[in-house]
Structure formats: structure tokens, C-alpha cells
Amino acid sequence: MKQVPEITVLMPAYNAAKYIAAAVESVLNQSFGNFELLVINDGSSDDTEWIVKNFADERIKIINQPHQGIAAALNIGLLNAAAPLIARFDADDICYPDRLQIQYDFFKANPEYVLTGSDVDYADHNSEYLYHYSNIGHTHKEINDRIGTFCPFIHSSVMYKKDIALTIGGYDAKAHTFEDYRLWIKFITKGKVCNTKKPLIMVRLNPESVTVDEKLRGKRFGILKKEMLFADNISKEQEEELLEILHSQNFMRFKNYSYNILIAKKYLWNNYQPAKARSSVRRAINFMPFQTTGYGLFILSCLPQKFVHRFYKKYKLLTGA
């Protein structure tokens, strides 16, 4: 008789052929074995489906659907998940070997919790280590106090109770790029949440990812996001305005520019290596030479480390970054 899984690892995938094999391997190599890996292939036009199907492991399930976006893919996954616990994971990240065991043991020992995440390590598209990220809060109180100012969880690090996610309506497909943040705001009303300080995954930054430095999306994006995060219902007008902003930036030149700006910032703010920061800035400027951010970062990369860190502290105070 087939064992019922304790955990569903939920992985949406869209044109993820470049990285998905490593992501799947990191799940299959977990010290905790009683899981299913549910891959929602969201209309990929590359070899994503073929790569996943070439893994000979009965714990892998794949659902193919026309491209509908990450929120729709995740909601399909929630409806088809066989386990009571959902471990979110992205197709370009890497799970550390004990990730599932640590989070499973936590839920068994703390039934009052509905969601747990972790700190993470970041790497670039070549898997080169960038920096360690510590979340804005780790205890329930810290997260509850700060959830209004910044997203308190790294999406692909979280494990949560499926029944709670379904009860609160799953991911809001209108909250494009921050559907996870909106879900956490609802989750925290249903029970306790936390983050572990131990990093459980490696998040890979790459130009193809939806991860973009939101400061580059413009002031209106930030205002609109804040309005939509805490709205009872997102209006059609709000969604249309948000989509207009996102569509205007949905081209590879902007994505490559944004990626290299983000990498440069990490090599200045989080893992001081000015030469690497300058290399990323040069690439960013090549993609979008008329944007001023790259030139400012280039100047900073030539200044002493103490000055750069003082600048960053003031920058955080002004922007809340």
C-alpha cells in the first residue's frame, strides 16, 4: 500500500530548464523521505517537463497547465496536494539536506503554529555565494510587529498548513509579484508564525527570475503595492494599473539591468567586494545606459568601505529597505 505523504513540496515552474534539475535533486536528497514533489508546469515552452519526467522517482508528480502565472499555479497545487503540510520551493533554488526534517519536527512539536520559514543564503545565477539573509523577524511577535513594513518570509523557504491556506482563499492572483506577502498577512491572523535563524535553502538570483529590485519599479509601484496588500479586495482598476507597470518592464534588457543592479548592491551592502560590484554595475550600464542608478553605485564602489556602510544605513532609514 502506497504511503500517504506527510509533506507536499510545491514547486511551480515556468521555463525553468536551466536550473530545475538541481532544484529537484536537492529535494530528492532530503533526509526526510515521506514527501511528494508536486511540480506545476505553468505552460513552459522549454525542456522543463522533459527534465522533470526523466527523474525516476515515484514521489514526483507533475501537472501541466497553460501559462497562467505563479498564483494560479500555486492554487492548483494546493488543490491537488496530498499532504497536510506544504513546503514551498522554487524551481531555481536549492534545498539544504535537512530542510524538510527540521520544519516537519517543528510543526510536530509546536501544533499552535501555522507557518514557519527560515533565513536563507543567496547565490547568483552561477551558484556563486552572495550573502546570508536574516529575516526582519524570527519570533511570532517580531513578525507580527513588522509585517506592515516589509515581507517577513522568503517564499521558497516556508512550510505551512494546507488547510489554513485553503480556508483563507489561497494566493490572490490579482496581487502580481507579491501574492505571497498578501497571503502571509492573512496567515498571521490564523495562528502563530516564525522563522528559524538557520538557513534552510539557497535562493538563486538570476535574470529570468521574477525577483526584481522593487526600487527600480518606480514610486507608484510602491504606493500601489501598499494599498493592495492590506485591501479587503483588490479592485479591477488596481490590478490593471499594476499590470501596466509590470508589462512596461517585462523585457529582458530591463531584467538583466535589474539583476545586475541587485547583484552590485549585494556586493556593496551585504558582502563587501567592490571589484565584483563594479563588474555588475558595468554590465547593468551596458543594458540601460541612460539609467542613473548604475552610475551612483559605480561611484560608491570606488569609495572606502566605512563610507559605503554609512551611506547604506542612511539609505535604509530613508527607504525602509
Rank of each mutant, 00 (worst) to 15 (best):
Q3K: 15
V4A: 15
E6R: 12
V9I: 13
V27S: 07
L28P: 09
L28E: 03
L37Q: 00
L38K: 09
L38Q: 01
G43Y: 10
T48I: 07
K53M: 13
N64V: 06
A73R: 00
L78P: 10
L79I: 00
P84T: 07
L85H: 02
A87S: 13
A87N: 08
D90F: 04
D90V: 05
Q101C: 02
I102L: 05
D119F: 01
A123H: 09
D124N: 15
Y131D: 07
Y133S: 11
N135C: 13
G137K: 10
N144K: 14
F153W: 01
G169T: 10
G170H: 11
R182K: 15
R182Y: 07
K190W: 04
N195R: 04
L205P: 00
E208H: 07
V210Q: 11
K215W: 01
L216V: 05
G218S: 06
R220Q: 12
E240T: 12
L242A: 04
L242N: 07
Q249A: 11
F251H: 15
Y257Q: 03
Y267R: 11
N270D: 09
K276P: 03
K276F: 01
F287H: 14
Q291F: 12
T292C: 06
S301I: 03
P304G: 10
H309L: 15
Y315C: 03
T319A: 03
T319W: 05
G320P: 02
